[in-house]
Amino acid sequence: MRIKFIVLAVVLAVLIGLALGPVRQMAADGEVVARAVAKTACSCIFVAGRTLEECRRDDPPGFDRADAWVDPAKKEVTASMFRLARASAQYRGAEGCLTD
């Protein structure tokens, strides 16, 4: 009887591991998109002098899945992908916009 529980636990652990692999990859992909959106929008707003709405209209496919907002006081743009992955880019004068 005890061997059944051990086998069941191993099978369950394998299934959970298989399910978490794609979730981790999606989170990593989301972080890449969030960083790219933050950096692109930051440069567009603080270097080119455009509004966030104008900048977002020019986004490449896939960037529309990320939300972005601007903090004009900090000269910073923050973006998040499905509220899971989040990144910020800050305007630093001659250095341009740098991500965190």
Rank of each mutant, 00 (worst) to 15 (best):
A73T: 11
D29G: 13
G21W: 13
D100R: 08
A13R: 12
K4C: 04
V10Y: 10
L18M: 09
K4L: 10
G62S: 09
L98P: 07
P61Y: 12
V14T: 05
A89D: 07
A48C: 10
G17L: 00
L12Y: 10
S43M: 05
T78D: 04
A68E: 04
D29P: 06
M81F: 15
L8N: 08
V23C: 01
S43F: 02
D58A: 12
M1L: 15
A89M: 11
R50F: 02
D59C: 13
V47I: 03
T51Y: 00
F63D: 01
V14D: 01
V23N: 07
A34K: 07
L8H: 12
Y91F: 03
P60Y: 12
T78C: 14
I45P: 02
G30F: 08
R24N: 06
K74P: 02
V47T: 04
T51G: 03
L84S: 05
R83Q: 15
R50G: 07
A79D: 09
D67K: 14
D64L: 13
E54V: 02
T40N: 09
A73D: 08
V10I: 14
G21P: 07
R92D: 06
R83A: 15
L12C: 15
A85D: 05
D64K: 14
A66H: 09
C55A: 06
L18R: 06
V23K: 05
T51L: 01
A38G: 06
L84T: 07
C42F: 00
A87K: 09
D67V: 05
C55Q: 07
V70S: 03
E53Q: 14
V32Y: 05
A68C: 03
L20N: 03
R92L: 06
A79P: 03
M81D: 14
R56K: 01
T78G: 10
V32C: 01
T99C: 11
C42A: 03
P60W: 12
M26K: 12
R57S: 00
V77M: 07
L84V: 14
G21S: 11
K4D: 02
E31Q: 15
T78P: 03
A19M: 04
F5K: 11
P72Q: 10
V77G: 01
D29N: 14
R35G: 11
R86P: 01
A79M: 05
P72F: 04
C44K: 10
A85W: 09
I3E: 13
A85E: 00
I3Y: 11
A89R: 02
D100M: 10
P60S: 13
V70G: 04
F5Q: 14
Q25V: 10
E76F: 06
R56H: 01
T99F: 07
P60I: 09
D29F: 11
R92P: 00
A36E: 14
F63Q: 10
M81S: 13
S43Y: 05
A85R: 06
T99A: 12
V47Q: 08
R57H: 02
V14I: 11
K4M: 11
W69G: 04
V7S: 13
R50Y: 08
R65T: 15
I6C: 10
A94C: 03
I3T: 15
G30V: 05
A85I: 08
L20K: 08
K4G: 10
G21V: 14
R57T: 04
M26R: 11
P60H: 13
C44H: 05
